[in-house]
Simulated assay, not measured.
Amino acid sequence: MSADNEIQEERNQGEHYENWKQNVPLMYEICISHQNSWPSLTVTWLNEIEIDQNNNEVHKLIVATQTDGQEQEFINVLMIQFPKETDEEFDASVLNNLWKTQAVGKITQEQQIPVQYDINKIRQKPGSKFILAAQTSVGEISIYDISRHQKVMALKGQEREGYGLCWNPKNQNQLLSASYDKKIYYWDVGTGQLIKSYSFHQKEVEDVCWHPQDPNLFISCSDDRTFAICDIRTQQGMKIKQEAHSQEVNCIQFNQLDPKYFATGSNDAEAKMFDITKPEKQIYSFSNHEDAIYTLQWSPHKKNLLATGSVDSKIILWDYLKAGKHYEGELDKEGTPEIVFYHEGHRSKINDLSWNVNHKNLIASVEADKNMLQIWKIQTQLWMDDDNDDLIQSLI
C-alpha cells in the first residue's frame, strides 16, 4: 500500500471512529475506554465480584503489558465499579445519573505484578480467586498467585511460544497449552509436571479448549487449517481431525451452555459453528468480517450468542438461532439476521475479548496498536428476541 493510500485509510478510519463516538449514547448502556501504557495481548475478567457501600458492583480484570523488551513487563489487575446489575426494564438514564454522582465507571489499577517475559495469554484457574496461568513469549507457562504478588511455578518443556491456554473446569489442576512447535501440552499444575504432549497437527497449534462437562475431552485448532477432537484416555489423544477452513484456524471454543457445539475462527475471515457429535460438516458459517478472526468467545449467559474479534478492528455479536431465517422487506436484502451488533470502538486488530460471568452482557476487549482497553454493554433493546428484529437491525 502506498504512503498516500495509508494516509487516506487512516483518515477514513479516524472519521469512522468519530462517528462511532457520537452514537455511543444511542447504542450502549455502558461504554468505557481506558488508555493503557502499553498494548495487551490478553484480557480476562476475574470470577470474583463484590458489592461496595454504595451498592455498586466491584469487578476486576487482568491485562498484561507488551513492551517488546523496551520496559519492564507487568501483569496489571484493574478494578472497576458499576451500579448493581439491574433487570431488563432498567432505564439507562438512571445509570447516567448514578455515574454523575458516584465514582463509578472508573478504572483503577489495584496491582501491578512484574513479570520476566511478554505474556501472550492469561487465564484464571476455575474455583480460585488468585491463581492465573500465563502463556509467555518464550514458551514457559507461568503460574501466578496474585494474592502473593508473584510467580509461584514455571512449567517448562514447551519449545516455542503459543497463545492457546485452557484450564480443565472439572479437574482443576489440569492445564492445556498450545504451541507454535506444533504440539499441545497437558500439564498437572498440582505437581508442576508435564503429563503428556500431543503432536498430531502438522503446523503451529493456535488454540485449545477443554469440554465444559467431560473432563477427558478437548478440542484444538491449527495453522494446518484443521480442528481436532481429542480424548486424553487414548494413546494418541486425537479422535477426529477435520479440515475446517480454507486458511489457518486461529481460535476455537466450546459453547459453555450447550457443549455439543463449538466455534472456530480463521484467517479466511469466517467463524464457523460445529456439532461435536457430527463434526464432519459445519452447522453455520458467519462471514461478515473483512479480515482474519483472532479471538472468539461464547456468552456465559445466553447460549445462542457468540462474539468474534478480527484484524478488521471490529467485534461482531452473532445469534446463531437467527442464522438462515428469512425476513420481509429491507432485512431480506441485508441477508445477515444473525448479526446482533457491530462494536466499532477499536481502531486496530482485536487481540482478545472477555465476557463477564457476573454481569450480564458486559464485555472487555483489547486492541493491538492503540493501547486501548474497552468495557462495554449494549442497550437492552438490542438483545430483544425475534419480534423486535426491525429495531435491532435499525440500531446496528
Rank of each mutant, 00 (worst) to 15 (best):
M1T: 05
S2W: 06
D4E: 12
E6L: 14
R11N: 14
G14E: 09
E15M: 12
E18H: 10
W20Y: 06
Q22T: 10
Y28S: 13
E29P: 06
I32V: 13
S33L: 05
S33K: 11
Q35G: 14
S37D: 14
V43Y: 02
T44R: 12
E48G: 08
I49W: 01
I49R: 10
E50T: 07
I51H: 11
D52R: 05
H59L: 13
L61D: 07
I62E: 03
I62F: 00
A64S: 14
T65E: 09
D68N: 15
Q72W: 02
E73A: 06
F74P: 02
Q81Y: 08
K84M: 08
T86A: 14
A92I: 05
W99N: 10
Q102F: 13
A103Y: 11
G105Q: 10
K106V: 09
Q112L: 15
Y117W: 07
D118A: 15
Q124A: 12
Q135P: 03
T136Y: 10
S137G: 06
G139A: 06
S142N: 11
I143K: 02
Y144R: 15
H149W: 12
A154C: 12
R160W: 13
G164P: 02
G164C: 05
G164M: 11
C166N: 14
N168D: 01
K170P: 06
Y186Q: 02
Y186M: 04
L194E: 06
F200D: 14
E206Y: 11
H211N: 11
H211M: 13
P215M: 03
P215K: 01
L217S: 04
C221D: 00
D224R: 05
D231Q: 14
T234R: 11
E243R: 15
N250T: 12
K260A: 13
Y261I: 02
Y261V: 02
F262W: 03
D268Y: 00
A269W: 03
K272D: 03
Y284H: 08
Y284W: 07
N288W: 00
E290A: 07
E290L: 14
T295P: 08
Q297V: 04
W298P: 07
S299L: 06
L305G: 00
L306Y: 01
A307P: 05
D312H: 13
K314N: 09
W318F: 04
D319C: 04
K322L: 10
G329W: 15
D332E: 09
K333C: 08
E334W: 15
I339H: 01
R347N: 00
K349F: 09
I350Y: 09
I350S: 03
N351S: 09
L353Y: 01
S354Q: 05
N358D: 01
S365V: 08
E367P: 04
A368E: 15
L373K: 06
W376R: 02
L382D: 01
W383R: 15
S394V: 02
